[in-house]
Simulated assay, not measured.
Amino acid sequence: MESRSVLRVVPPVRPRKLAKVPFVELAGGRLRGVVSSGSDPARVYVSAIAAGTHGFSCSTNNNRPCGGLGATLCNHLRTLVDEAVLQYGLDRVARYLRVEVAEGQALTAALRGHREAADAAGVFSSFLRHLTYLELPATTEPLPELAWFPSGAVPIIDGTGR
C-alpha cells in the first residue's frame, strides 16, 4: 500500500462568490482578504478587520484608500465579512474576531471598530502566493515549499482536493 501525506482542506460552509472575493482568511489576528471592485473589474481592494479591537482598513493593493471607507465599514469590508461567514461559518468568524453576535443580528452590526492602518501589501502577497498553488499541475509528489506544516507531513496536490 502506498503511503501519502495529504492535508485535508475544510470545505466551505456554503459556496462562495470567488469572483467577488477571491481570497479570504483568518490569519495574523485579522479577518483579511481581497475583494473585487464593484466599479472597475481591474481593481481589487485589500480589506481587513482586527480581532478584538475590530479596527478596520480597506485600500487598493497599491495602498490607495477606499473612497467608501469612513467611520463605518465600507461595502468591501461588508462583503468580506459575508464571504468569511460563508467560508468558515458565523460562529468561527465571530469567535476569531472576539465579538458576540445576538440571535438574528448580522456580524457587521456587532463590530464596534475604528479605522486603522493595516499591511495591505502583506495580505496581497498572501493572495498572490495562494494563486500560484492553483497553477501547479496535479502530482502525487511532495511539495517541499509546504514542508512547514505542523504535522511534519508534506502535503501533495493530487487533483482531487483530497
Rank of each mutant, 00 (worst) to 15 (best):
S3N: 14
S3H: 14
R4E: 05
S5T: 14
P11V: 06
P11T: 01
P11D: 01
V13T: 09
P15E: 10
L18K: 09
L18D: 06
L18C: 11
F23R: 02
E25I: 08
L26N: 01
L26W: 02
G29W: 00
R30W: 00
L31C: 02
R32S: 04
G33N: 00
V35W: 00
V35T: 01
V35E: 05
S36V: 07
S39T: 13
D40H: 11
D40Y: 03
P41W: 01
R43M: 10
V44D: 03
Y45R: 00
Y45H: 00
V46A: 05
S47C: 08
A48F: 01
I49D: 02
I49Y: 02
G52D: 12
T53E: 07
T53D: 09
H54I: 04
F56K: 02
F56Q: 01
S57F: 11
C58V: 07
S59N: 09
N61V: 07
N61I: 05
N62L: 14
R64G: 08
P65S: 06
P65Q: 08
C66M: 08
G67E: 13
G68H: 07
G70R: 12
T72W: 12
T72R: 11
L73P: 00
R78C: 11
R78A: 10
R78K: 15
T79A: 15
T79Q: 12
L80P: 06
V81A: 09
A84E: 04
V85T: 09
L86Q: 11
L86A: 13
G89A: 06
G89T: 02
D91H: 13
R92P: 10
V93L: 06
V93R: 02
R95G: 13
R95L: 07
Y96E: 06
V99M: 03
E100I: 09
G104F: 01
Q105L: 04
Q105V: 06
Q105D: 09
Q105N: 08
A106L: 07
T108V: 05
A110G: 03
A110Q: 01
L111F: 02
R112H: 12
R112T: 12
R112F: 08
R112D: 12
G113P: 03
A117S: 13
A120L: 00
F124N: 03
F127N: 06
F127A: 04
L128S: 09
R129E: 15
H130P: 00
L131W: 04
L134S: 13
L134C: 08
E135H: 15
L136S: 13
P137W: 03
P137R: 08
A138M: 11
T139P: 05
L143W: 08
L143T: 08
P144M: 07
P144I: 01
E145H: 14
L146G: 08
F149D: 14
P150R: 14
P150D: 10
S151E: 13
S151N: 10
S151C: 11
A153M: 14
V154I: 15
D158Q: 11
G159S: 08
G159R: 09
